[in-house]
C-alpha cells in the first residue's frame, strides 16, 4: 500500500500552517511556477494576435497598457526572480553545496529578490 495521501488534497500543497521555512520555499516555487506557466500561455495568445492582422495586434497592445496589466507584468518579474533565485539554492544544495546553511541562503536570496522587485516596481511605476 503506498503512502496514500488523502484524495483531492492539492490545497494542502499551499498550506503554510505549522510549517518551517523550507516549506515556504516549496510553496513559493510552486506558486511562481504556476504563475509563470499561466503567463507563458497568455504570452502565446498575445503573439497569436499577430496572425490576425495589425489592427487586432494594436488593439491588444492598447489593452495591455492598462495599469492592471502593468501590475501583472510586475508579478511576472517577481515570479521569475523568486523562482530563479530559489532554484539556484535548490541546484546548489543538489550538488551538496550549502546544505547545512540552506535557511540562511533562502533568506539571503529572498532579500535579494525583494530588492530586485522593489527596483522594478520603482522603474515601472515612476516612469508613467
Amino acid at each position: 500500500m503506498p503512502n496514500q495521501p488523502e484524495a483531492n488534497n492539492w490545497p494542502r500543497w499551499f498550506d503554510p500552517r505549522s510549517r518551517s521555512l523550507g516549506t515556504f520555499g516549496f510553496i513559493l516555487n510552486r506558486v511562481t511556477a504556476l504563475g509563470l506557466t499561466l503567463y507563458l500561455l497568455m504570452h502565446l495568445i498575445a503573439l497569436g494576435q499577430l496572425a490576425r492582422g495589425a489592427d487586432a495586434y494594436d488593439g491588444f497592445i492598447a489593452l495591455v497598457k492598462n495599469p492592471l496589466f502593468k501590475l501583472g507584468e510586475l508579478l511576472v518579474i517577481a515570479a521569475g526572480v523568486i523562482h530563479g533565485l530559489n532554484g539556484i539554492r535548490i541546484a546548489l544544495n543538489s550538488f551538496g553545496i550549502g546544505v547545512r546553511c540552506q535557511k540562511g541562503t533562502f533568506i539571503a536570496l529572498m532579500l535579494i529578490a525583494l530588492f530586485i522587485i522593489a527596483f522594478f516596481t520603482f522603474k515601472m511605476f515612476s516612469e508613467g
Binding site: P2, N3, N9, F26
Partner: peptide
C-alpha cells in the same frame, strides 16, 4: 514532507 503529500509513490 510536502513532496510525500503530492506523490503517493514517493519512498520518503
Amino acid at each position: 514532507c510536502p513532496a510525500a503529500n503530492t506523490d503517493k509513490e514517493y519512498v520518503g
